[in-house]
Design a protein around this nucleic acid. Structure first.
Lengths: 230, 230
DNA sequence: GTCAGCGGTTTTGTATACAACGGGAGGGAT
DNA sequence: ATCCCTCCCGTTGTATACAAAACCGCTGAC
């Protein structure tokens, strides 16, 4: 593997994990020394981070780790809604049934993954990643996938901003199940709208966890009332 | 201006104008000699092209100019529909009235720009660019704008694929007018749907001009029948 | 007190030399 | 004849040296 790739992945991981916090200046000589490479491949990795939007030009010509605050998350979800509803629509149009039958079965039993045994929820997030991958495979639209890929980088960073809330994850599992079922049923409209619903609720959860008041002043309905959607 | 920026812009222009055709290998030493810079800034420009999707890795480690065929245009418009309908929706929500009043007036008179005097249609395309810029300014959503920017690069390249057809441009002007009016009226749904209509028609025109049979076997309605939409 | 100009220092931008990887032609074995 | 192995050459990847530009603190004038 090339040194510039190692640099890129290493810095990317550090930024996504919030080990490098927003505003940190990414000095070429300093980072080159830290990662044990020369400035040439380091610069290449840095420019890739910049084209991902993970680093932005600070004062002068320096690169700094990009901000990601509550308002940025709102903007991020405006893009996410555009891309993921379209992805769901196209997946519903083009999917092969087998994968989504399997995913529906797994999401129907997602509560078994959300016991208190696994505080990182890795089994659950793996299932969500599998759904994303299945949708990507079904979409089969290179330009859209490319944008989705860039988006997911920022979504992953945003996830680390808010704490994992088990009731919300159980609700999210039902929303994912609805999406997977709609794709399986080739119901393009429902797939897109269920995705939109899921994203709006996820955004509200993240913003609430950040201490932001939600845009709507209404209390959330009790979780049991949402069961009818599944 | 930095040498790497000149390299990037020069190669980008060459690719968008189809002076560098798909499949052309972008050899570092060759291009560095042609553009009069050393390999270091040239590589930087090349990587930017790759992250834009204008260059892709060929056999070995070489970069080649990316393909853009009829099927790619279809995929491109799947992304375009996702991004531009969302942009229109958000612009309708957040626009300041003045700019769009002006744009409506200009699009209402777009037929005056489409005389046979100007074979490049530069005045008309400038007007379209102004609408795009006004929507961008109203959207005010950094992540979405970033994706839109990347998209427009490929759209510009695709435009050079098909010939300019005056009747279609007159029809497109009416579609643009409808979008601008919907944004001005803060009608989010209409803005999004009018954008979708415009994109579907544009895609059909491009594909027809490429010799592809449209997906629908129906003949286009006469141009005068579309006047009711304005 | 404030602001403009000016070195000094630090940082980024560029050029070049060298290392390493990969493809392709050629030859030998089967 | 075909397949595979090897060596050579061209290309890309990396390191380093040098050039240029920008920040910072200083000084001085108004």
């Amino acid at each position: 593997m090339r040194a510039s790739d190692r640099v890129y992945e290493s810095l990317r991981e550090d930024i996504l994990a919030w080990r490098l916090v927003p505003g940190t200046v990414l000095s070429e000589v300093e980072q080159a020394a830290r990662l044990g490479v020369s400035r040439t491949p380091l610069r290449e990795g840095l420019r890739r981070l910049a084209s991902d939007g993970l680093a932005v030009v600070g004062k002068g010509r320096t690169l700094v780790v990009a901000e990601l605050a509550a308002n940025d998350v709102r903007h991020l979800f405006e893009l996410r809604e555009a891309l993921e509803t379209q992805a769901a629509r196209l997946a519903a149009r083009r999917r092969r049934a087998g994968v989504f039958e399997d995913l529906c079965a797994r999401f129907a039993r997602a509560d078994e993954l959300l016991t208190d045994q696994d505080p990182t929820r890795s089994a659950y997030y793996l299932l969500v990643a599998d759904l994303d991958a299945a949708i990507d495979a079904a979409v089969d639209s290179p330009y859209l996938l490319r944008s989705l890929q860039g988006l997911r980088t920022h979504v992953a960073r945003a996830r680390r901003l808010s704490r994992d809330d088990t009731p919300r994850l159980l609700q999210a599992a039902q929303e994912h199940l609805l999406i997977a079922q709609a794709v399986l049923d080739r119901d393009e409209t429902l797939a897109a709208q269920a995705t939109a619903v899921h994203l709006r609720r996820s955004l509200a959860t993240i913003l609430a966890s950040l201490g932001d008041r939600p845009t709507s002043p209404w209390p959330d309905p009790p979780a049991t009332a949402l069961g009818v959607l599944t």
